[in-house]
C-alpha cells in the first residue's frame, strides 16, 4: 500500500512538473533581502499574468515570415517607409508619436510587424484568390449621387452623347474627386447600388438608381431623403485589378482568419498552458 501511495505521489509530482514551463536560470534572484528571494521563475509567472496575446501574435508573424521566405530587406524598407510617412505627417510632433509607441526602436518593430502582416495578407489573398473572388464579387466602378433626379438624368444623357463620366458629373455641379473604386459584396453602399454592381457582367453605365436614406437629427426626428445614383461599372474581371482588390480587402478582412490559416499550414504546436489559454480564445488553430 505504501509503495502504491509513493508511486501515485511520484506520478502526480511528475505530471505537475510537466505542466510548468521553466525559464533558464530560474533560481536567479530578481529581488532579495530580509528573507525575500523573488526568483526569475516567479517573475516569469507574474509576467505571464498579463494578457500577452499580442506578444505571441507578433512572435508568430515573425516566425511565419521566415517560413514563408519573406525578404527581410523588403520588410525593413516597408517599415522605414511607414516611419517616414509618419515623420512627414507629424513633423516636429513625430517624437511624441514615437514616444507613444515606446520609442523609435519599438515603433520600427511595430512597423515591421505591420509590413509582415501586409505581405502575409497579400500571399494569403493570392493563395485564396478564387474563393475570395467568389465570396466578395469585386467590380471596379465609379459611383456618385445627386439629390435631384434631373441632374442624374442629365448626366446620363450627356455620357450617352459621348462626354466622359467625370466631365458630365462636373457639368451637373459635382465637384468631388471621382475615383475608380473596387466595390465588393461587403462594401458599405446602398442595397440598390450594390445590386447593380453585383449583377453587372460587363462594363456598363447604369440608369438612374433611386435609393432612400434615413437620418436621425439631434432632436431624434427621423427624416428620409432620396438619392439618385449614377454608376459606371468600369471592370468586372477581378484579374485586371487584383492589387486594388487585395488593398480593399486588407482594410476590412478578418486578420484572425489569415493568421489561423498560417497556423494550420505550418502545424503550430503549443507547449505552454497559459499561452494556450490566452490564444485559443481568438485563434482556434493555436492548439
Amino acid at each position: 500500500m505504501k509503495k502504491l501511495i509513493a508511486i501515485i505521489a511520484c506520478v502526480l509530482l511528475l505530471s505537475g512538473c510537466a505542466a510548468k514551463t521553466m525559464v533558464s536560470d530560474s533560481n536567479t534572484s530578481i529581488i532579495s533581502g530580509d528573507g525575500v528571494n523573488f526568483t526569475k521563475q516567479e517573475f516569469f509567472e507574474r509576467l505571464k499574468n498579463n494578457d500577452y496575446t499580442q506578444v505571441i501574435v507578433n512572435s508568430l508573424y515573425e516566425k511565419i515570415a521566415v517560413l514563408e521566405g519573406l525578404d527581410e530587406n523588403t520588410i525593413n524598407e516597408g517599415a522605414n517607409s511607414s516611419i517616414n510617412e509618419l515623420k512627414e505627417q507629424y513633423g516636429d510632433a513625430f517624437s511624441t508619436v514615437a514616444a507613444y509607441y515606446g520609442g523609435e526602436d519599438t515603433l520600427f518593430e511595430t512597423m515591421k510587424i505591420n509590413e509582415i502582416i501586409k505581405l502575409l495578407s497579400d500571399n494569403y489573398f493570392t493563395e485564396h484568390k478564387d474563393e475570395l473572388i467568389e465570396e466578395y464579387i469585386p467590380v471596379k466602378a465609379k459611383v456618385i449621387y445627386f439629390d435631384e433626379l434631373e441632374a442624374a438624368q442629365a448626366m446620363i444623357e450627356e455620357i450617352n452623347n459621348g462626354t466622359s463620366f467625370e466631365m458630365a458629373a462636373a457639368h451637373q455641379g459635382y465637384s468631388a474627386t471621382i475615383a475608380d473604386t473596387v466595390y465588393t459584396d461587403k462594401s458599405d453602399i446602398s442595397y440598390e447600388v450594390k445590386n447593380v454592381l453585383q449583377t453587372a457582367t460587363e462594363p456598363m453605365l447604369s440608369n438612374v438608381i433611386l435609393s432612400v436614406v434615413s437620418a436621425t437629427d439631434s432632436s431624434g426626428n427621423t427624416t428620409s431623403a432620396n438619392r439618385y445614383y449614377v454608376v459606371e461599372v468600369t471592370d468586372v474581371d477581378p484579374e485586371n485589378f487584383l492589387d486594388d482588390f487585395y488593398a480593399a480587402l486588407s482594410d476590412d478582412y478578418d486578420s484572425t482568419k489569415i493568421l489561423d490559416s498560417y497556423l494550420a499550414k505550418y502545424d503550430v504546436q503549443v507547449y505552454d498552458q497559459r499561452t494556450y489559454d490566452l490564444m485559443i480564445q481568438t485563434y482556434e488553430e493555436f492548439k
Binding site: T21, I56, L60, L67, Y266, D267, V268, Y271, T275
Partner: peptide
C-alpha cells in the same frame, strides 16, 4: 522549454 513550435521555428 518551448512555448510553441511552428514549422521548424
Amino acid at each position: 522549454y518551448l512555448i510553441y513550435s511552428i514549422g521548424d521555428q
